[in-house]
Amino acid sequence: MCGISGIIHKHSSIERPANVGAELVKMLESMTHRGRDSSGVTVAGQSTDGDLIIRIWTDDEANASDVLARSEETVQRAGGVIVDRVVRDEFLRLTVNYEGDIPKLAEALLNTEGVEIHSIGETSEVIKDVGTPVQMDGRHDISRLSGTHGIGHVRMATESKVDISHAHPFWAYPFPDVTVVHNGQLTNYHSMKRAYEDQGHHFQTRNDSEIIAVYLADRLARGATLEQSLADSLDDLDGTFTYLVSTRDGMGCAKDRWSAKPLVTMETDDVVAVASEEVALRQIFSDEIARQEPQQSEVLTWLL
């Protein structure tokens, strides 16, 4: 079991963002009965002045400062100018002025020893950690992040180990700004992964959910719309899933043919909030408004 949630402010923009970080933490904290192994969020639609946000983490606790310093050197060698850096233990957040090819930069970082990339985004970033959302907020100040939309996850691990790299959201390496949170299990993960690896894709984890992000980002990069990519996934992914995707343009969801995992949505003129359970939506809406429940094989998108 896991809990997922997402929120999008329909009239917001990068210039006029909303308190997405704080809203996601509130929604996710109300669903910790669905999982408290790890938590994570994507805050998208952030103001970056054209810079990239890079989120890096290392599991090499003893040599964390060396590893993180190495990753900064890698960024600089690739032609990036570091505008801002925030270090918290094994976590590094860089704001980088970079004009080059993003997949090239991602590959250089991936090949830097000890480095794991949580996200590279032009307007978004992924923050994830073990523990509950409020604990994570205390460590990473998520509540202070504003944006146009975001997605989040609380995890009860079923298919792979409990650690930070297997926490959601998963970033679609090396495509900027595409991230996914997933509730369920994929049964054709290994065959899909082999097919993608044959095409030259790299995976950072052994978590089945990572492939959803790569799958969608790959489709989007080939020119498909978000809605079409989500609809295609209903046939191509096997197993149980309700997942949310965040892109630069907005947010979407897809639910498997068995309707195995829950999702409810509430919408006003200004805001759409979605979550595994209504209890999370009640953190956003105090008024009695209509609740919708997507059914089996249903996809929805909300674009800015």
């Binding site: 009965h33 359970e277 209504e278 209890v279 939506l281 009640r282």
Partner: peptide, 8 residues
């Protein structure tokens, strides 16, 4: 019962 808050 008032204010059940969608709790389980």
């Amino acid at each position: 019962v008032t204010n059940p808050g969608a709790r389980h």
